[in-house]
Design a protein around this nucleic acid. Sequence first.
RNA 1: GGGCGCUUAGCUCAGUUGGUUUAGAGUACCUGCCUUACAAGCAGGGUGUCAUUGGUUCGAGUCCAAUAGUGCCCACCA
Length: 887
Amino acid sequence: MKLLSKVYEPQKVEDKWYSHWVEKNYFHSEPNSKKKPYTIMIPPPNVTGMLTMGHILNNTLQDILVRKARMEGYETLWLPGTDHAGIATQTKVEKELKKKGKTRYDLGRENFIKLIWEWKEKYGGIIINQLKKLGVSCDWERERFTLDEGLSQAVREVFVDLYNKGLIYKGKRIINWCPVSHTALSDEEVIHKDVNGHFWYFKYPLKENNNEHILIATTRPETMLGDTAIAVNPKDERYKKYIGKTVILPIVNREIPIISDEYVDKEFGTGAVKVTPAHDPNDYEMGKRHDLEFINIMNDDATMNKNTPEKFVGLTRENARKLVVKEMDNLGLLAKVENHQHSVGYSEREDVPVEPLLSHQWFIAMEKLAKPALQVVNEGKVTFNPSRWIKTYNHWLENIKDWCISRQLWWGHRIPVFYCKDCGWESAEKTDPIKCPKCNSKNIYQDKDVLDTWFSSWLWPFSTLGWPEKNKDLDYYYPTDDLVTGPDIIFFWVARMIMAGLEFKDEIPFKNVYFTGIIRDSQGRKMSKSLGNSPDPLDIIAKYGADTLRFGTMLIAPKGQDILFDESQLETGRNFLNKLWNATRFIFMNIDDDDDFSKLTIENITLSTPEKWILSKLQNTVKSVNDNLDNYRFNDASKDIYNFTWNYFCDWYIELIKPSLFAESDTVSQKEKKSSIFVAIYTLKTILKLLHPFTPFITEEIWNSIKNENETDLIVSEWPKIDDKLLDKEIENEMELVMKIITAIRTIRSEMTVPPSKKADVLIQDDSEKYKDILNRNSNYIKSLGKIENLTIDKRIEKPEMSATAVVEKLQIYIPLEGLIDTDKEKERLKKEIASYEGRLKAVQGKLKNPNFVKRAPENIVEHERKKEKSYLESLELLRKNFEKLG
RNA sequence: GGGCGCUUAGCUCAGUUGGUUUAGAGUACCUGCCUUACAAGCAGGGUGUCAUUGGUUCGAGUCCAAUAGUGCCCACCA
């Protein structure tokens, strides 16, 4: 037996147990034909990442599922890993370089990649170690990285396959260009923000008549340098006469046609639109329709290129804009400027406006892949929790656009397409060719671009298991069971994984998806570095321990709703774990050194009322925890355990057994005491099991101090089974009455300010003798918990002159309070009580008086209301009588 | 413009298929307690037009519709 400190100190136990679990290899999984597999693939955090509250929520949920499955006897695999995070990682290392006054171009591609690998080896493990602090039970022997050799092979296999199927193609399109990272982005990597900009009204002079102008409005004046037409709606009477004519593009002095196109909205702006086909997606479409010229006016960094007049070359977008406006003004062609709010696309990573740019990029044709992915979710083969995300998923997939997968970066999977300079051969290859297979020339080279990071992520559920090789792992663990992730990456990741799973494995990648909420600060703002409102989870762990962070988060995280996080909310969790700790201490204090419980079982001991009651309540709790966890209701499950432990086990059971524990020693009470303690230990152990997935450290610590020698560590112990024989509704009802009586007595004492140190006498009148047996059986408990000196229970009791009264069902309770009673106060109290019952009675009678209710409501409901009515009437009668006696 | 959430006690929020709850928890608050597990505790207390308005139903916080406020996602309006 251990001497436990008065307050639980997580810092002393957490690291110890984590090392112990790892040493014992409990997290490791191997295919085992005798067991069913249970598999979760971690959403791989960015290798550059630091642990955030989002990770805490996400990984705690996964760990709960995994630890429970492990205890339930599944062969459990939680496979961890990190993502190479193309842009994020490259940017980070480039910033380091910049401090030394260098760029990646100074190093060259090969050396730069080498440098990132060095950086990865040095810092890439940080987030993994942070996760370990949280207690996650991942199989670290199977840790993967998206740029690992195996995963890279999977990427290449997939690319070649899609290329050969014609689903990957190279095309010239308007794409989102990030002028800071100098790369194309997918549509999903662009965030639209509403910005307060301007509408500039420009006059473009007609060639045919220099004094005549056509007025256009634009939010981006600098793009006029690339204008190749003016468009109007064919039905617009105002402009009909201009169609087919020509204007002179000011500043540039280029002749451009006036065309008509249905796209133009007559009502918007001036009804005439400048057309810049190389810098706007809509203009691009118009340009194609009308065979316009495509003039790219920008360099990769969004400065003006030599396709613009000399004074603009080299200017940034912003400066070019200013100069255009100024020049137009000087030329007298700036008609007016208006404030105008509009939406601008920003690069998700760099937070700068993206530039729509005409460029050669690689794309995946998505439509064919989307169809089966839609089907499996809508047929319920893959379930979404909460299910409302299905709509979001459907909407995206039904309107899917081709995925731009090439990035002009160096860090990532290089596109495995090779070209021959001599004969023009082009092909996607699984391994690097040495010479051109067509003309034998060695003059071949590989495409310079790398793939979007998500191109490796979408293969994660099977690439991590060794695909494309066929092996036991893949057969055994795939498809996986649950995916836990945020709804913000439903398009980036979830949908694409489903598509990839179906296309390459011919099977769904996971059976269920649980979408977490998003953790926000106490004012509802998204947590972000720039706002500085994101607490460092490691600081919290240092302060409260990982268990408190985990349990506290679970308590406040309802299914799929966003969470407003405030550190003070964790105190509930901390206090609870301390409560559990102290309940354990109490049990230890009442175990004698020579006690031996090893031969005792629930079946072979004599159970008295509190034991039967707590065991019955325990069965209900196990049932409810199971049910809630099966439905991903983590916060309900954590509340089940919280309420059972605190409100039933600590507040009532432990208090109820105290008399037998403290009783003078004789053989009978010794036996009773032993049963009480045994059941206390049994219950505590079950609580530890239920709680272990939520708070692994404290439960393992307590478990190891209390377990029998032949028992395993808690992490691999057996999940509690429900024992129907221990369910006892009658005992629960009996205890409920006893608890009501005790509470009524306590209430009187408190309201009459009788200090707990002062023992009182209590008389209970049981007129009908309906409760005779129950009262006799439980009189000791009532005496003990009600702090009663003499308890008299009888059929015929006259109300003592100076006494306070209470009514519990048909029982009259009297507490003589000579000298303490304040008649007015007592009257007030009774009045309130009567009013309360009258209110209830009114509600019940309202229902019962309604003939339709009696006729149409189910019988058990009507019956229940009748019982309530009867009980209220009886109580009211007694209360009124007592009230009258007070005069 | 379309879609999806949210609105319940001072605060933060639960409330799963409508009926054992005249609506619950934590926290804050009030009263009394260092009662030999725990003051991070114990006992007691009350706190609400469940956003508004209609509808369905014997019965609505719960289902439906509209309205208001609020948040998020998607969408090419120059």
